[in-house]
Computed example of a mutant assay.
Amino acid sequence: NMATAIYLEHYLDSIENLPCELQRNFTLMRELDSRTEEKKGEIDKLAEEYIASVRSLESEQRVEHLQKIQNAYSKCKEYSDDKVQLAMQTYEMVDKHIRRLDADLARFENELKEKLDLSGYESPDARAIKKSGRGLKDKRGPKARGRKGSDDDSPKKKKMKSPDFGDSLLSVQPSDVLDMPVDPNEPTYCLCHQVSYGEMIGCDNPDCPIEWFHFACVDLTTKPKGKWFCPRCTQDRKKK
């Protein structure tokens, strides 16, 4: 419809220059890498020269030679700092567009809901949501902002989750993941109240207030057979 087209057109306009900006930043980062490698080569050469001639050098010459090595190290650090700044800028650049997309989606959904409320029409999706009593959170599962969610993500299907930002994090420790910068808009899960990462499991209690849990937090290493209930729901069921 027209509203969708307008939102889409505006968003596409806003990201039109993003590929060029990303390419520019990545090129600059590669250049900084090359400069750093060259400088490291210089440091190795200077160190070898110093070791070979240190005994024959006067005290002032030694200081001068060591100063050259120190300056080369400082330059290396400067290049590395510049690269880190570029990487942070690049992340922020992409994240800014993601936040805008989230805001646009929220506005669009609200406008759509208002129109449906005014017309008195209730969509099949809305009826399904009311019937299930769980809403979009159940359908999407613990994905950052629900961008890649599907019905397959529901706890009933017992999907093991991997984070939105790549499978490589499956091999790292949870503490490493939690040290990374976190988008304040990203939802949290589990007993630990942290974002989605690694393998996750959904509680089979439809009224579970948390729904999704990291394997390590509930002492799991593999996907259990049959139905699985989180520690809180297991305790509640025992009381009943």
Rank of each mutant, 00 (worst) to 15 (best):
E16M: 05
L105M: 14
I6M: 15
Q23R: 13
F108D: 03
I43Q: 15
P181L: 02
Y79S: 04
R237E: 11
E111L: 13
R99M: 11
Q23N: 14
S132T: 11
G146P: 02
Y7T: 05
P19N: 04
L12F: 09
Q85N: 10
N205M: 11
A106F: 03
I15K: 04
R30D: 08
R127H: 05
E48D: 13
A87L: 04
K240E: 04
Q89T: 12
G198T: 04
G135F: 07
I51G: 00
E122P: 00
P155D: 05
I6N: 12
P209Y: 09
G41M: 05
K161P: 00
K157V: 12
F229Y: 15
D33C: 10
E111Y: 03
S53I: 08
K39C: 15
P19M: 05
Y7R: 11
I43V: 15
K68Q: 15
M180I: 04
D153N: 06
P206T: 00
E109P: 01
N185W: 01
D219S: 11
S171V: 09
D179Y: 08
N1Y: 02
P206L: 02
A72P: 06
F229S: 03
D153V: 01
D82T: 15
G120A: 11
P124A: 12
K68P: 00
Y197T: 03
P124W: 06
K156G: 09
K240Q: 10
K158N: 06
K130C: 03
L57K: 11
Q67K: 15
G149E: 01
T36F: 04
E37I: 05
G133R: 03
S123T: 15
F229Q: 01
S168K: 12
A103L: 11
K115I: 14
K143Q: 00
K148N: 08
L169F: 13
D33N: 12
G198W: 07
K225G: 08
A5V: 01
K115G: 10
Y73M: 15
K161F: 14
E78Y: 02
P174W: 05
Y121R: 11
E31P: 00
K223I: 09
M93F: 03
P224W: 07
G135E: 11
Y91H: 15
C203M: 00
K223C: 14
D117L: 10
W212A: 05
K240G: 02
D125H: 14
V84H: 10
L169R: 07
N185D: 09
E31A: 08
M200W: 09
E199P: 08
Y50I: 03
V94N: 00
D102V: 00
L32W: 02
A144K: 07
S168N: 12
K148Y: 12
I129M: 13
P142D: 04
E38T: 10
V84Q: 14
E21S: 09
G141C: 01
